[in-house]
Design a protein around this nucleic acid. Structure first.
Length: 366
DNA sequence: AAGTCGGGGAG
DNA sequence: CTCCCAGACTT
């Protein structure tokens, strides 16, 4: 390809005679092929077509640790229900969590509302056009602040996510652990020094896009389609199977639980989880630690009798913990001890946000 | 620096 | 199964 030859020639001119090309010159050489590739190959995504600050913000929060395809339907529904910052600042927590149900990392939703209220109270209801001010808002860290600043406002600051860490560590051939904060900060500094001042949005999104569709997270990179292949150290040295280097994560714990579908007069019991921790503020079926037998169930519920039927066991895997659940359907004649909401199957479907961990039992509620 | 926080797609 | 995803926050 002619473009790659001219790029190679350019590298030769940048390269000090007899010395290896240093990281900074290598990164500076990415600019033209990157921007040109992005212009031609970028995907059409809803939040890209109309990059208003509010839309960029919501999309970037949803995209944290979440794939593009998973976000699309949630983004559309969210923008329809809450079209502006004012709407978000006033939405009820239950309605907000229902909009977020199934997307995961529910503190993202709660932080969105917190930030929206701050924006209304202190920023005139608009997102600030400042990396530093954006980063102060709840739920917005260094990546998201950089993404919103560059994409919505054109401010030349880097936006280093997992994609960018992978692409850059391969381009410069770094075997440092990309999970270390110091390594991430270092890459942010390097990029900040070489970023184009007038094309921050395309530059950042281009790097991210390459990471998402070419220099992919799972499996071998598609180097024959990569605009950066001619200057990539990992490719040159056949290290794409080694780089990026990441420390292995710890095995998750397993917890035993007993889930109860309590029925009383045609309604089923649910309760709201606490406001912090796993699945914070979402609803759940009553459940207890450990695998309870029938006598222990009655004791837990503080009732003398109930028509108890065993349900199929199920397992749910979170990132760092898994639930091993046994379950029972219990038809009650008297109100059990404990603070429950007695709801209809229809209300569970339409009003209350129940996490997927209970899916095996939600579908049994008819 | 290490833990916590979801759910799903891909290999 | 394991790995990872347009990460942030708490301890």
């Amino acid at each position: 390809m002619e473009m790659k030859h001219s790029l190679y020639d350019k590298l030769q001119t940048l390269k000090p005679r007899g010395e290896a090309l240093d990281d900074q010159n290598r990164l500076k050489a990415m600019e033209r092929p990157l921007l040109s590739w992005y212009e031609e190959h970028r995907r059409i995504l809803p939040w890209r077509e109309d990059p208003k600050p509010y839309r960029v913000w919501i999309s970037e929060i949803m995209l944290q640790q979440t794939r593009v395809e998973a976000v699309k339907p949630y983004f559309a529904r969210f923008m329809e229900a809450l079209p502006c910052i004012g709407d978000l600042s006033e939405v009820s927590e239950d309605e907000l969590l229902k909009l977020w149900e199934g997307l995961g990392y529910y503190s993202r939703a709660k932080n969105l509302k917190k930030a929206a209220k701050l924006l209304v109270e202190q920023y005139g209801g608009e997102l600030p056009a400042s990396y530093e001010e954006l980063k102060k808002l709840p739920g917005i860290g260094s990546y998201t602040a950089g993404a919103i600043a560059s994409i919505a406002f054109g401010i030349p600051v880097p936006a280093v996510d997992g994609n960018v860490l992978r692409v850059i560590s391969r381009v410069i051939g770094s075997k440092e652990d990309i999970l270390k904060q110091s390594v991430k900060s270092g890459i942010e500094e390097k990029l900040k020094a070489v970023m184009p001042k007038e094309a921050a949005s395309s530059y950042n999104q281009g790097l991210i896009e390459i990471g998402a569709v070419v220099c992919i997270p799972n499996g071998a990179p598609l180097c024959d389609r990569c605009p950066l292949s001619s200057l990539c150290v990992a490719r040159e040295k056949d290290l794409t199977g080694v780089i990026p280097v990441k420390t292995p994560k710890k095995p998750r714990k397993s917890e035993d639980k007993t889930v109860m579908l309590l029925w009383l007069k045609g309604r089923v019991a649910i309760r709201k989880r606490e406001g912090t921790g796993l699945l914070a503020s979402l609803y759940e079926f009553p459940n207890a630690e450990g695998h309870l037998d029938e006598a222990q169930l009655l004791s837990y519920l503080q009732v003398k009798e109930g028509n108890i039927k065993e349900l199929p066991p199920s397992r749910h895997i979170f990132s760092h913990v898994e639930w091993n659940m046994t379950a029972y359907r219990i038809e009650l004649e008297e109100m059990p001890g404990g603070d429950y909401l007695w709801v209809t199957p229809e209300e569970i479907k339409k009003t209350y946000s129940l996490p997927g961990a209970f899916k095996a039992y939600t579908k049994l509620v008819r």
